[in-house]
Simulated assay, not measured.
Amino acid sequence: MQKTHEQNALTVSYTCIGKGNPVVLIHGFGEDHRIWQKQLPALQKNYKVLLPDLPGTGESTLNSEILSIDSMAEAIKLMLDEEEIKTCIMLGHSMGGYVTLAFAEKYPERLQAFGLIHSTAYADTEEKKEARKKSIGFIQEHGAFDFVKATIPNLFAATFNRTHSEEVQLLTEQGKQFTAEALIAYYNAMINRPDRTAVLKEATVPVLMFIGEEDKAVNPADALAQSALPQVCMVKLIPGIAHMGMLEATTTLNETILAFITTIITLKQDSVKA
């Protein structure tokens, strides 16, 4: 069921499917909630799955003057409050991982566990900031969709691009929804976000790190180093894929998420018995 809620200049549109323990899946840059469509069949039978569109995506309106990683985390809180969900499991892909970390920093009591799917707690390096600024310049000169067309294929491993070109093309076509204003606002939000490795170090709940060995957007070595920071962390390093495990390694990601949730529930049950 598609829902929309607005409060204090924040609008969040989201899909809510299934019943059970709440699981929130947050999409990344240049995507919308449909990026998780291959994860839904594995989750919706036993869990209440919430799929938000971040502000500036889908029906979630953009206010570029206030958009930040933190304001997007507030949009997620608005969704949870509207659904009267006190605690959930939250997983974020790429930029969605940045939003997840911001939420975990501000509202740790609302999380049973959280995960970073091809994402990082590090702030942008100066080199990364300059690359993003160049991308902003490209968007301003050539438009949003030309940028999406040039960028999306680079998020996949070369083999997947060759063997699943229709899926890459479909994701590219879905990028037509984005305005230049929205993409630029996302880039500025990512440039300005702080380092959040402390969130991982101080996490009192289990953390999932899902890593692509050929990922060019998130350095696999950096992600592996961060996996040592939480008290409890499930780590999956997958060979042969890059930044888009939802499509490149659907079965592996689904199995990993289900195993992660099972571990969380088991730990919770053990703590109650103790």
Rank of each mutant, 00 (worst) to 15 (best):
A42H: 14
I139Y: 00
M90Y: 03
I117V: 15
R132M: 09
S119V: 07
F114L: 03
L78Y: 08
H142M: 14
L80T: 06
Q112W: 09
L40T: 08
H118N: 04
E59G: 01
A131T: 05
D124N: 13
D70N: 05
Q140M: 03
V99H: 00
L78C: 06
A73F: 12
P52T: 05
F103A: 07
E59A: 09
A102R: 09
T125K: 04
R132C: 05
G96V: 06
L43H: 15
K133I: 14
T100I: 10
N63H: 12
A75C: 07
L101C: 04
T61G: 00
K45H: 15
K149A: 08
E141A: 14
S135D: 08
S135R: 12
A42G: 11
E109A: 12
K86Y: 09
L51R: 01
A104L: 10
I139V: 07
T120W: 12
A104M: 11
E84F: 08
I69Q: 06
G92M: 06
P52V: 04
A131M: 04
E65R: 08
S71Q: 08
K129M: 13
L78T: 07
L111S: 01
E65I: 06
S71K: 14
A42M: 09
L111T: 02
A104Q: 04
N63R: 12
S60H: 03
P108V: 09
E141M: 01
E83N: 06
A144N: 05
E109Q: 15
F147A: 04
L51S: 02
Y122A: 10
G137V: 00
P41N: 11
L62V: 03
K45M: 14
L40N: 03
S60Q: 00
H93T: 13
H118Q: 02
I89G: 00
K149L: 14
L54D: 00
I66S: 03
E82V: 08
Q112L: 15
A75R: 05
S71D: 01
E74Q: 14
N63W: 02
Q140G: 00
R132S: 02
A121I: 11
T125V: 03
E109L: 14
P41E: 11
K129T: 11
D146W: 00
E74D: 15
K133D: 01
K129I: 15
D124Q: 12
A121C: 09
H142A: 09
L62H: 03
F114W: 04
T120Y: 10
N46V: 06
I69S: 09
S64R: 10
P55E: 11
S94C: 08
M95K: 12
I89L: 11
L101Q: 12
I139G: 00
S135T: 10
L101Y: 11
D81N: 14
T87H: 14
M79G: 04
L43A: 11
Y47N: 05
L62T: 03
L54S: 04
V148A: 09
F114C: 01
T100S: 13
G58E: 06
L91G: 05
R110Q: 14
L54T: 05
L43N: 15
L91D: 06
C88F: 02
G143Q: 02
